[in-house]
Nucleic acid binder design. Structure first.
Lengths: 337, 337
DNA sequence: TTGAAAGCGCTAACAC
DNA sequence: GTGTTAGCGCTTTCAA
């Protein structure tokens, strides 16, 4: 069975292919009746547009590439749902890939996106990505790139973030207010803005409470389940244990907490704990985990809107450097002494 | 800056575009030296192939469409990582979308995939999808479709599954062996094979233990967090409470358990609980949740392998109806009396 | 092993 | 408001 083309439709109606092409779109100068006839016949013949021919000619794909570290978090899936929501409304679709926190895979993915000539790119960086070389190709070709959550620091690219410094500060301050004097920070790779800023916020709060910063109380890891468990074990072996823990994500906080609880440590009495992200898991662990809410869906929407507005010429992304969404401290049992 | 095409390469080497095209692929009849020259120059000039032109001509996209209910589970993200692994090795990439459990969105997504002429489709059904009309277009055009986890029942399409009946049977039997006499089943929509079979397994185990099936002990829901909490509340209000619960997924099991624990019910002493999926959350809740392991990564790999083998003519998918992967009962504290 | 020619299906530019 | 013309960049014949 042969594919139906605009020429078949044209022949049926005794008009030109160009008119058909226009009728199938929202071309300004087309007779409404002609348009209706075209659309009707198209449906009747089972026509489907050939995106390759279209893209080849028009140099637009109506596809937005997405590169994220992982898909399996509440945050990410919410963010992607937000992007899809906006994208679908505007006739775009998403080409999604995960870097699994590997820069190599991130580069590969970026390459694939580039080869597939996505109209724009939305990315959140792998934890150890150093430079933006693999995104330069896009910039050079004027393909807009927007980052969310994990963005480049010193870069004029557009980014959607929350105020991680403020959030980190608030978490730490809350622990201090609960009477903690010796707060440990389970940090992520500080190459990434999100983790660097949370650490900065932690330091700022300590300073405000006149507690000297103790480097040995900062443990950097990939914040995985295993890392959380290991941090717990590390703490159990410490001579002088902390009385508070601020972990840079909920997963790590929770698994650290489980390890401590198993060893008989009381939470929050002996050690108060707080995480980051408001992952559903934070309400499963007992006591429930104090954390920071994270507007994933909104971030996704904001990123996609910003990109698509730019693509359709409604606004210029380049004038926007950072969009900061609000987040807030959620106090639960794990830190309330 | 203009795009580099095969003609530019051809001009540089004084050969034809056809030869360049061949040199860039694994064409059998091409001189090795010529090929090397072509590849070298291509790199030097920064050539990137235009997939549209290529697809337009060759009618292949090297893209596999993926439609899943949700992305944010350990299982799904593992499955997708498995697919990506296989796909990337074979030079395919994935167009991923989530139906968010809505048939309407699933249909939309299928439509998008079709329009974008994916070479093949891998799908897991939304919970209330009734018929396969939206997949027929693919079948008609000879675009292979493969389902995993949530598949159509009476259908000759290829599917990758686990033996849900056996798993449901084993969970229930385990609870019975622990002395449970009155086991409640928190079921998913039984329109979906996975939930229907788990229910069947539950029934089979009861029968084996000569316990009459009591319809009022089966609560059907979407198995969400809220549904779990509601199930817990429902149980608390029951005159004659169950002494065991088999939930069709871990999320629902966990939130049900939390509700019961909060009300002072002892788990497993008063009520033993088991879930399904081995989601990381099952090891967070206290006591840890008994569950069924679920080979997400392997399922993804199997689905992609099967599809790509078919696409490349290495095998014929149509001769394969179902591929069943193994799963197993993981016994933890929530059910060990 | 290489090349010439044709055309995949569409849309931009221009003309009427 | 519609049509003509040309060509996007590639691969597939077919021929040499």
């Amino acid at each position: 069975m042969k594919e139906v083309t605009i020429y078949d439709i044209a022949k049926h109606l005794n008009i030109s292919a160009t008119t058909v092409s226009r009728g199938l779109k929202d071309h300004p100068s087309i007779n409404k009746k002609t348009k209706k006839k075209i659309v009707d016949i198209a449906k009747e013949l089972g026509y489907r547009s050939n995106t390759f021919a279209s893209s080849l000619r028009s140099k637009r794909t109506h596809t937005i590439g997405i590169i994220v570290p992982r898909l399996n978090s509440h945050f990410m899936s919410a963010a992607i749902a937000g992007m899809e929501n906006v994208a679908n409304e505007e006739g775009y679709h998403l080409l999604i890939s995960q870097s699994l926190e590997s820069t190599k895979k991130e580069i590969d993915n970026a390459h694939t996106m580039f080869t597939n000539r996505v109209d724009g790119l939305i990315a959140s960086l792998a934890s150890d990505t150093e430079n933006n070389a693999h995104f330069e190709a896009f910039v050079n070709k004027n393909v807009p790139v927007i980052f969310f959550d994990r963005v480049f620091d010193n870069d004029q690219s557009t980014g959607i973030v929350i105020d991680n410094l403020k959030a980190g500060y608030e978490v730490t301050k809350h622990l201090l207010q609960q009477g903690c004097k010796r707060i440990m920070h389970l940090a992520g790779n500080t190459r990434r803005n999100v983790y660097e800023e949370r650490l900065k916020g932690y330091k700022r709060a300590l300073k405000e409470y006149h507690i000297p910063f103790d480097e040995s109380l900062v443990q950097t890891s990939n914040l995985s389940e295993q890392a959380g468990t290991q941090a717990g074990e590390y703490i159990l072996n410490m001579q002088h244990r902390p009385d508070g823990i601020f972990a840079a994500n909920d997963i790590c906080a929770v698994f650290c907490m489980l390890t401590l609880l198993k060893a008989g440590i009381r939470v929050p009495q002996d050690i108060a704990i707080a995480g980051f992200n408001n992952d559903p898991i934070s309400q499963v662990v007992q006591p429930n985990l104090t954390t920071i809410s994270y507007p994933g869906y909104e971030m996704g929407k904001a990123a996609a809107s910003c990109l698509i507005d730019h693509l359709s010429g409604r606004s210029d992304m380049k004038t926007t450097n950072k969009i900061i969404l609000s987040s807030e401290l959620i106090i639960r049992g794990s830190s309330l002494k």
